[in-house]
């Protein structure tokens, strides 16, 4: 539970967001004060029948005045845009060494999986001072991964991966909330993020029940679901080989080019007719409905792991 009257700043981002927030708050308070003062002072001074001077209006009250405050407002707002936008741009890309956690959302729970294969429900343990990157997908409707103390929020979509990253800077337990309305128990779709010291995290991981990591599980599924029947090196079916595929630019039969990223690989499994690789027949059946989102993530992780082995697999 967060405190009642303030919100902890538990990531590197939180501090930056709060700077902007408090800057805007000060500016708003000043503006509001100015407008209220003006309204009250003018209303009292120029109440009907008061002795305040009226007569011909002074020269200053004219068009230049109007243009003046319009330009001041405009420049002020442009400055605010620049300030906020540059903070946003700085935090876009996750560092390369980030810990990669997979998140699957469904009505009304969060499932998380660590690189080691350890899984959690409605909870996520992470080490302090190490960037964490979340790859998220939903099995049903749109959810939103919201950790107020981290100042991060990202919608979690069905049929697509979205990601965010953060760098925890403070140990403790912080609420995780679903912020996008997702049906009956939307408000119960809560969890907790536990930020631990690094050695505690390592220890915690060893105590988790054994689980295959995603790529290993993907390798198992690759055989179990019959993918290997066509896509394995030894197969005689004319199908694209997957080693070294991830991250490469793929030529499609209709002349387009796409980058083989997570989205492309997911689409190729679930809607194979959409992007046909050049030189191949559209013979692959769709796996939509046969693979759940967790399995799609595992298979994607497996295909990604093959990219590292390009050299020996291509011979």
């Amino acid at each position: 539970m967060n405190p009642i009257f303030w919100l902890p700043e538990a990531t590197s981002l939180a501090e930056r967001v709060d700077h902007i927030f408090y800057g805007l708050l000060a500016l708003s308070a000043l503006t509001l004060l100015l407008v209220f003062m003006l309204v009250v002072v003018l209303a009292v001074r120029y109440r009907r029948g008061s002795a305040a001077r009226r007569g011909p209006l002074p020269e200053i009250v004219n068009r230049e005045f109007e243009i003046g405050w319009t330009s001041i407002t405009l420049f002020l707002f442009l400055f605010l845009f620049w300030w906020a936008a540059s903070a946003d741009l700085r935090s876009l890309a996750a560092p390369a060494d980030a810990l990669e956690i997979h998140v699957v959302a469904k009505q009304w729970m969060w499932k998380t999986q660590h690189p080691s294969g350890a899984r959690e429900i409605d909870a996520l343990h992470v080490p302090i001072d190490k960037p964490v990157r979340l790859l998220m997908t939903s099995q049903d409707v749109i959810h939103s991964f919201f950790v107020p103390a981290f100042r991060v929020k990202q919608d979690v979509l069905p049929g697509r991966d979205t990601e965010i990253w953060f760098l925890p800077t403070r140990t403790g337990v912080f609420p995780l909330l679903c912020a996008e309305y997702c049906g009956t128990d939307h408000s119960m779709m809560r969890g907790r993020i536990v930020v631990m010291r690094q050695q505690d995290y390592a220890e915690w991981l060893t105590q988790q029940p054994e689980g295959d990591d995603l790529a290993h599980e993907g390798a198992r599924l690759f055989v179990a679901r019959g993918c290997s029947g066509c896509h394995a090196q030894s197969s005689s079916v004319h199908a694209p080989k997957l080693a070294g595929l991830y991250g490469r630019t793929v030529q499609l039969s209709d002349g387009r080019q796409v980058k083989a990223d997570d989205g492309y690989i997911r689409d190729s499994m679930l809607q194979p007719k959409r992007d046909i690789a050049a030189g191949f027949e559209p013979i692959m059946p769709s796996y939509a409905g046969l693979l759940d989102d967790g399995e799609v993530q595992s298979l994607t992780a497996y295909i990604r792991s093959l990219a590292a082995q390009t050299g020996k697999a291509d011979d």
Binding site: I20, F21, L80, W83, A84, A87, R151, K153, E180
Partner: peptide, 14 residues
């Protein structure tokens, strides 16, 4: 203005 600023909006939207 808070909601037009992307980093603040990310925190307070919804």
């Amino acid at each position: 203005l808070f909601l037009a600023s992307i980093p603040v909006d990310v925190h307070v939207t919804d």
